[in-house]
Amino acid sequence: MLRAKIRQMLSLNNKVIRYILQAINYSLFMALIWYFSTSPVYRQLADDEAILTISFAHAGEIKEPCVKRTQKELMALPPNMRAPMNCSRERSPIVIEMMFDGEPLYSETAEAPGLYNDSGVDIYHSVKVSAGKHHLAIRMDDSVLKEGFTHVFEQDVDIKPAQILLVGFNPSKGFIVR
């Protein structure tokens, strides 16, 4: 009924009504963009939350020990390839465990990438944690030839709300918290 009435009015070539309807449509169009270009606001972290990120690149130890070649083996090789030691290329996986206030927070066993499993591993993991004082413990094993974890790290940390607490690793310095 309403539509029929609108049609009837428009059939009288009432441009004013048509422009008013257009203004309404453009307003709706603007309102749609207005709202969804910034709203609803997305809350990424609660007020008492922070981020703990562990990120580093590290190559595991060679998986098998090097073996000294015998004279016979050396002579069987082309002259340019007569290296005295025969070392495999394959590297150990990186095993990492992270404990937060004694509770497991993250663990991963990352195989060495590459066609011959001979490349370094990239570790990246980010997780939400509660801000405040906590105890952080990290253990990493990068060699299948050694018993137990090759790198162990423990530290008390005070994390501020919204802070990104970054844990890195340097082979000479061990784990570093920033």
Partner: peptide, 24 residues
């Protein structure tokens, strides 16, 4: 009416809690 504005400057040591996302 509603000029487009930025959030605070990026700071890689912290994570922004509230974000006015462009949902489109």
């Amino acid at each position: 009416i509603k000029p487009a504005v930025s959030h605070g400057p990026a700071d890689l040591s912290s994570m922004p809690s509230m974000l006015e996302l462009d949902w489109f």
